[in-house]
């Protein structure tokens, strides 16, 4: 196959994070606990993956306050959305292509 799949997204956990966030309408942010609930990950594990995605510029993390309680809000950046679209397209073309295993 031509180009390798985006290594930032091409890992079970981060693919799940990005896929879940991609279901959110653009311009919306999701709270950390709800994202955690959707993904059924531990808070620590999710934080690690979010940091990697943030470092790549795929995810934007906003810390804010609701009254006294701090809240963390997450969304895909425009770049993240594009990367996810490219990734899905690449996966589709792998599946449509000659290589039936399509691994890595």
């Amino acid at each position: 196959m031509t180009e390798p799949l985006d290594p930032v997204i091409h890992a079970q956990a981060r693919l799940r994070v990005v896929a879940a966030l991609s279901a959110l309408p653009e311009g919306d942010l999701l709270t950390f606990p709800r994202l955690q609930e959707i993904l059924a990950m531990t808070a620590g594990n999710l934080s690690v993956h979010l940091r990697k995605l943030e470092d790549a510029g795929y995810v934007e993390i906003t810390k804010t306050h609701h009254g006294r309680t701090p809240a963390t809000l997450i969304r895909l950046s425009r770049r993240g959305r594009l990367a996810f679209d490219d990734y899905t397209a690449a996966v589709r073309s792998l599946l449509d292509g000659a290589d039936p295993t399509g691994s890595t």
Binding site: L5, H10, A11, L15, Y87, L95, T101, G102
Partner: peptide, 11 residues
């Protein structure tokens, strides 16, 4: 879970 999924798994 850093293991890369196969294309089918990914989809």
């Amino acid at each position: 879970d850093d293991r890369p999924p196969s294309a089918a798994e990914a989809q």
